[in-house]
Design a protein around this nucleic acid. Structure first.
Lengths: 330, 330
DNA sequence: CTGAAAGCGCTTACAG
DNA sequence: CTGAAAGCGCTTACAG
């Protein structure tokens, strides 16, 4: 591959000048500019981004950590993120943390070593220890789902307590009195808020938290199915279940139907996210819609502002709104 | 951030030695080794990957270009790919080419400038011109779906003609005589092979290609719905439709149902891929299963062999097998 | 409007 | 077992 030195030699100018026709950071006479451009074209010169990044301290890369790319919520988020970031020529380094035996910690260390300009961490449990190296490297961080233990990091999320409160209250208003909950994996970000919102709604309605009716899944369809089976083992069934995401709600539906019961007549089901599958499954799933694409886009904007900023990070918190989508499972 | 020079100074050794305790490429006495490791830990030293890559000419990065991350086929593929590549510490630079106005060309140029070690191109139309800079940079390329016009590039794919032939023949064997086809976007890789297989099956069965019954979509649900509407405008309806992927088949199902017709009684539908939605939609979709995860994993293995190889690339072609999954739409 | 030179932070022959 | 020095390919003060 030709280097900037080769271009300079062929064009009869200095490397400095070639660099400046490339970057536009200093005026270059139209004539030399043209000559250089021609040579670049002839030689097929492609500037080495590594060398550029090493000097200029900007890699044009943002790392994205998601727990599971096969949960459609995250591709949608990634798409929104790319939309924001592409405008500034950033590329996405994607890490599906759920795969292999690499932990969040290993991916973060890798991102730091690669000197990415920013990191987006979606719905993942991260310790203060994990974030120490990130903070030391002064890499901008935006988290999705919950605030991270790093000074002034931005967060964009749905109001998880309100999401769960509103979904559960909707079930209460439909006349349900025995409402179960399939929660997210303990320790992962939106799990806690959604569990709290569920309990708050029951309390607000003057209902007891039914015994053994709050179980946790792992955010997957299989996990939701297993959780629902455990709920159905109890002598008295719930008449409705609030599931902390759609994938688990779909798994719960599998279990209800497999048990010979009907949705919603025997057990009503509500999910969260509104992934496409929610509208495809039969009965179609009632769910609390969270705009994944918008979250990604907002996360991207926040990150860009941080990367560009010379002031200390502020620690903003952006809430996206949720919306009940009523279908046939309730 | 501390550098290798800082570590060397603090440990009282040369940068060379620090580099070698890091890489293990040369024996270091246990005592100095320990000292250096301690200093690294104390200072929180994180080697700068950019500098390493600039010297060693290995970035540990693989670019993946996909047409649409929100089509679940591609996240599954990306997951398989990451599984292969993570074993060798490669990270994925993901480009959702369908988004924004950046063409394949721009992403490839970017990948070349970043000196990625390999590129995986999935189901995307790429010109020889686009690949020239990639070839010049001697970057390993593996394509998914169709062989690319680049010397000796590997390809992993399903046998698209056979996929379509088998799916269409299955419809023929079920007694259908008027079978339509919703094809993929012309020019995108698997579209041609699947259209050919469809026609070959009709011919093999001694059936005419029905007039106006072969239309093209754009691989999306919306595109499938529009295509189906056009098919239904004809005076004589088909009794079955072979759709080149599941997303379009689901869109076609939307259109059939919206027209007040029944699946499969009035119109039978077959898709390709077996994304999760195929089993969720009602009636559940009969489809030709393509193992996306396996394709990704194989693509990763091929790429690793290429990156490691010092011989000229061979141009291998790996076929993954397909399998009919009969559900309720036929 | 242009260039010489230092330096970003590493690795790797070369030498001992 | 260890080190001095060159160099990967750029950018950017500094100088004119």
């Amino acid at each position: 591959m030709p280097t900037i030195a080769a271009v300079a030699a062929a064009a009869g100018v200095s490397k400095t000048t070639v660099s400046h026709v490339l970057s536009g950071k200093r005026p270059v006479s139209p004539a030399t500019r043209r000559t250089v451009l021609n040579v670049i074209d002839e030689l097929g010169f492609q500037p080495n981004s590594l060398a550029q990044a090493l000097r200029s301290r900007r890699t044009g890369t943002v790392a994205v950590l998601v727990p599971d790319v096969t949960n459609p919520f995250y591709p949608a988020l990634a798409r929104g993120l790319q939309r924001s970031l592409l405008a500034q020529d950033y590329l996405l380094l994607l890490a599906d943390v759920g795969i292999g035996d690499r932990a969040v910690h290993a991916f973060l260390a890798d991102a730091v070593q690669r000197r990415v300009d920013g990191i987006v961490i979606a719905a993942l449990a991260v310790t203060a220890e994990d974030l120490r190296t990130v903070a030391r490297a002064r890499i901008s961080v935006v988290s999705v789902g919950v605030r991270l233990p790093i000074d002034g990091s931005d967060v964009v999320s749905s109001d998880d307590e309100a999401v769960a409160f509103d979904a559960t209250t909707y079930l209460v208003n439909r006349g349900h009195r025995r409402i179960a909950n399939i929660g997210g994996q303990p320790g992962t970000p939106p799990a806690l808020g959604r569990a709290k919102g569920y309990r708050a709604a029951l309390e607000h309605a003057g209902l007891d938290l039914p015994d053994g009716m709050q179980v946790v899944g792992d955010w997957t369809r299989d996990g939701g199915e297993r959780a629902m089976r455990r709920i159905l083992e109890h002598a008295t069934r719930p008449t409705a279940v609030f599931c902390a995401n759609d994938l688990m709600a779909i798994g719960a539906m599998d279990a209800v139907i497999a048990a010979g019961l009907r949705v919603p007549q025997d057990v009503a089901l509500v999910g969260v996210d509104d992934i496409e599958a929610a509208s495809l499954v039969r009965p179609a799933l009632t769910t609390m819609r969270i705009p994944a694409d918008e979250i990604g886009q907002v996360a991207g904007s926040l990150l860009l502002e941080r990367i560009g900023a010379d002031t200390a990070p502020i620690g903003r918190s952006i809430r996206v709104s949720h919306e009940l989508v009523v279908r046939d499972s309730t």
